[in-house]
Amino acid sequence: MLEPDNREQGRKHLAEALRDLRKAAGLSGDRLAVRAAMSQSKVSRIESGKVLPTVVDVERIVKALDVPAEVAHELLSLARAANVDYASWRSYARVGLWRKQAELKALAESSSAVRQFLPAIPSGLIQAPEYARAVLTPTVKGNPDRDVEKAVRARLDSQEVLTDESRRFHFLLTEQAVRWQRAESAVIVSQLRHMSALVDQPNLDLAIIPNGVMVSAAPLNVFVVYDDRLVIVELFSGEVALRDPQDVEYHLNLFEYFRDRAVSGERAKILLDSVANEFM
């Protein structure tokens, strides 16, 4: 993620605060490690700022140090903030949006399972070329300029990760995302045919929540979960990265909730082909 200044400052403050509290308690790193059920090397990496502690890590440390409740609350708040990154699309545009596509490819290549919840638009990993071009072309005032063709090439290049059958990809769309007309009808038909052809790929689960199905939870945001370590939530202005295990677990639970109400396999192909016929 970009915009590192505030993020790095928060990590530095957290590392310094934990180190100072340990010293004030008169404990060595070894002794704190025993009390917090951590390795001494992990305690050292946290205090030096080389490793960002999770909220659970900080909870274990402050409990081991027996710090006052108000201090513990402040440190936990700092840990939650440090485990959240925000990057605006303007920031990506300044260095080249194509770099974002390379970053997403690297994230997928470092994961054994990628789950994408897509209530409004198909993932870039499953976009046909002309559809990707339409999506990446700025249309709304304030949407930053970018080298569209370079971004499209980078997006198509990132799709090579789908050929690695050692990884599992889960794409969960709403029917609204399938039907939303982001481009001319012929482009939409091509996109729908492209997704239909992907349904049979062995390492790929493409599922769709049909209109008319009872779904009590609201599909508020696009989000992607990489294994059980990272969530990327997409906003109009940018995206937020969440690393706290509780946040990751919650989004995994959300994904499974929505997935249980979706169709896949042959039923997904029938739905996609039916919508394609309507656009034709």
Rank of each mutant, 00 (worst) to 15 (best):
S112K: 02
I61P: 09
A87G: 10
A134H: 02
L75F: 10
K100T: 05
A87I: 14
E130K: 02
A134W: 07
K100W: 14
T54I: 11
A69C: 15
D66V: 07
V55T: 12
S77M: 09
D145G: 14
Q116E: 05
V58Q: 03
P68W: 10
L104H: 04
P138A: 09
V114Y: 00
V62K: 03
H73R: 11
N83Q: 13
A134D: 03
Y86K: 11
S111K: 00
S111D: 02
L76D: 15
V114I: 07
A79Y: 14
E70V: 13
A134G: 02
V140K: 03
E70Y: 10
A81P: 08
A79E: 10
R99H: 09
T54P: 10
P122L: 03
V71Q: 12
V67R: 12
T54D: 13
L76A: 15
P144I: 05
E59C: 11
E103A: 08
A134K: 03
R94N: 07
A108L: 00
A93P: 07
S88H: 07
V135C: 03
R99E: 15
A106W: 01
V67H: 11
R115V: 01
E130S: 04
H73Y: 15
E109H: 02
L65C: 10
A106L: 05
K105A: 06
D85T: 13
A64S: 10
V62R: 01
V58N: 04
G96W: 04
E109T: 00
E70F: 13
A102G: 06
N83D: 10
R60H: 13
P119K: 01
L65R: 09
K63I: 13
S123K: 03
H73E: 15
V62Q: 04
R99D: 05
A82S: 14
D57L: 14
V55G: 12
R133S: 06
P119Q: 03
G96F: 03
A87L: 09
E130P: 01
G124I: 00
L78Y: 10
P129K: 02
A113G: 01
A108G: 00
N83Y: 08
A128D: 05
